[in-house]
Simulated scan of single mutants.
Amino acid sequence: MVDEGASIIDIGGESSRPGAAAVSVSEELERVCPVIEALRKISDVAVSVDTSTPEVMTEAIRLGASMINDIRALSREGALEAASRCNVPVCLMHMQGTPETMQQNPAYTDVVAEIEQFLKSRTDAAVQAGISRENISWDPGFGFGKTIEHNLQLLQALPRFVASGQPLLVGVSRKSMLGQLTGQPLDERLAAGLAVATIAAQAGVAVIRTHDVRETIDAVKVAAAFVRGQL
Rank of each mutant, 00 (worst) to 15 (best):
S66T: 15
D70G: 09
I71M: 08
R72P: 08
A73R: 01
A73F: 00
L74K: 05
S75C: 15
R76L: 08
R76Q: 13
E77R: 09
G78P: 07
G78E: 07
A79F: 02
L80N: 14
L80F: 02
A82S: 13
A82Q: 10
S84Y: 01
R85V: 05
V88S: 04
V88L: 01
P89H: 03
M93F: 02
M93S: 08
M93H: 03
H94E: 14
M95K: 09
G97K: 01
P99N: 03
P99D: 01
E100G: 01
M102P: 03
Q104L: 05
P106H: 07
P106A: 09
Y108W: 08
T109V: 15
V112P: 10
E114W: 03
I115T: 06
F118C: 05
L119I: 03
K120V: 13
S121D: 11
R122H: 15
D124G: 09
A125I: 01
A125Q: 04
V127N: 05
Q128R: 11
S132H: 06
N135R: 02
I136G: 00
I136Q: 00
S137M: 04
D139C: 03
P140D: 15
G141E: 06
F142E: 07
F144D: 03
G145T: 10
T147L: 09
I148R: 04
E149C: 11
E149F: 05
H150W: 07
H150D: 05
L152I: 07
L152M: 12
Q153K: 11
Q153G: 15
A157P: 13
A157D: 14
L158V: 09
V162W: 04
A163I: 14
A163N: 08
S164G: 09
S164P: 07
S164D: 08
